[in-house]
């Protein structure tokens, strides 16, 4: 259990980092390819943890960062 939570933690950190790649101006497709490449690396370092929750954490963290960013932008542009 602890191992799974730990691997999810690593997946979340890496997902957040990959979102920087997207925010730095790369296209969504290129970012998703990067995410897939990173997921393969994560599998290698998950040290026996199930890859499913790790991948979900990776994608969730990646998406959360972009959602937060877009919410902030929408709020800023709606301001007079």
């Amino acid at each position: 259990m602890l191992l799974t939570f730990g691997a999810i933690g690593i997946g979340s950190v890496v997902g957040w980092a990959v979102s920087n790649y997207r925010i730095s101006g790369r296209g969504l497709l290129l970012s998703l390819i990067a995410l897939t490449a990173v997921a393969a690396e994560i599998k290698a370092i998950s040290h026996g943890a199930s890859i499913v929750p790790v991948s979900l954490a990776l994608v969730a963290s990646f998406g959360l960062r972009l959602v937060v960013l877009n919410l902030l932008r929408a709020r800023a542009s709606a301001r007079p």
């Binding site: 939570f5 999810i8 690593i10 026996g48 943890a49």
Partner: peptide, 15 residues
């Protein structure tokens, strides 16, 4: 080492 709680604790701390 792989598959140990130590790695899990490390990952949680990292997060």
């Amino acid at each position: 080492p792989a598959k140990t709680d130590l790695f899990g604790a490390y990952g949680i701390g990292l997060f």
